Simulated scan of single mutants.
Amino acid sequence: LKEMKAFLSSIPYNAEKQDENHYKTLFYLIARLCTPYVVKTEECSAAGRSDMVIETENAVYVFEFKLDGTVEEALAQIDSKGYLIPYSVTKDKNGNDKKLVKIGVSFDAEKRTLGEWKIIEN
């Protein structure tokens, strides 16, 4: 996330409209292009859509993004909407449960980059 913050900070302020979808799309594209993992955006479940999910060999990371919101709001949404539940039975190649991780990220509109983030392993 530190590298993502540095990258987003390098984009000119007048490049385009910088709303939450702008940041979410950039975050998705960078993750998709720079990692070998399964990266999904707007991942639908029974109670809503998580902003992004990254699935690795041993873990599932569920992201919720907020523009000028708090990481606590983002993490609370992951919990209230049950975004981790569909992955609670996801197994690795050895049949073990994959680690589930929720990540709340706030984007700072004034600085035009990541603000804060918090990572919680369930």
Rank of each mutant, 00 (worst) to 15 (best):
E3S: 14
S80W: 00
Y37D: 11
I78P: 08
V53W: 02
M4P: 03
D68G: 15
D92R: 04
L84M: 03
Q18T: 10
P36R: 06
A46H: 01
E55Q: 12
E3I: 05
E110M: 07
V89C: 03
K2G: 10
L33P: 00
S80G: 07
E16I: 00
D68R: 11
V89K: 08
V38I: 10
S10P: 04
V89Q: 07
A15H: 07
I103W: 02
S80Q: 13
A6L: 10
L1E: 10
T113I: 02
V71R: 03
F7Q: 05
E73P: 04
D68V: 12
A31F: 08
M52C: 14
L100H: 01
I78H: 04
I54P: 05
E20C: 11
V53Y: 01
F107P: 01
M4V: 09
A74C: 04
I30H: 10
C34L: 11
T70W: 09
R112S: 14
A59H: 02
A74V: 02
Q18N: 10
E110Y: 06
G115S: 09
K93P: 00
I85F: 04
I78G: 08
L1T: 12
L114C: 11
L33S: 12
L67I: 11
E55D: 05
D19Q: 06
I78E: 06
V101C: 08
K98W: 01
E42H: 01
F27C: 13
L8T: 10
V71M: 04
E116P: 00
D92K: 07
N122C: 09
E55Y: 01
Y87E: 00
K81S: 03
I30N: 06
Q77F: 01
C44F: 03
C34E: 13
E20K: 08
V53S: 04
F7T: 08
T25W: 09
N94W: 03
C44S: 12
T25S: 13
P12I: 04
D68H: 13
Y61W: 10
N94F: 08
E16Y: 12
F63G: 05
D19F: 08
K111E: 13
T90F: 06
E121L: 01
F7H: 09
S88R: 12
K40E: 13
S10A: 15
V101P: 00
R112W: 05
E57S: 14
E116F: 11
V38W: 02
E121K: 09
K81Y: 07
S10L: 15
W117M: 13
N21E: 14
S106E: 09
Q18R: 15
R112N: 14
E55H: 03
E42M: 01
I103G: 02
M52V: 05
D68A: 15
Q77A: 01
G115C: 09
S10H: 13
D51E: 10
K102N: 02
E57F: 08
C34S: 14
K93D: 12
Y37L: 05
V53N: 03
D79Q: 11
G115K: 08
C44P: 08
W117G: 09
K111Q: 12
G104Q: 00
S45C: 04
T25L: 12
S88D: 06
K81E: 06
K17N: 12
T35Q: 03
K91N: 05
E72G: 08
I54K: 07
T113F: 06
E110K: 13
A109G: 07
L67C: 14
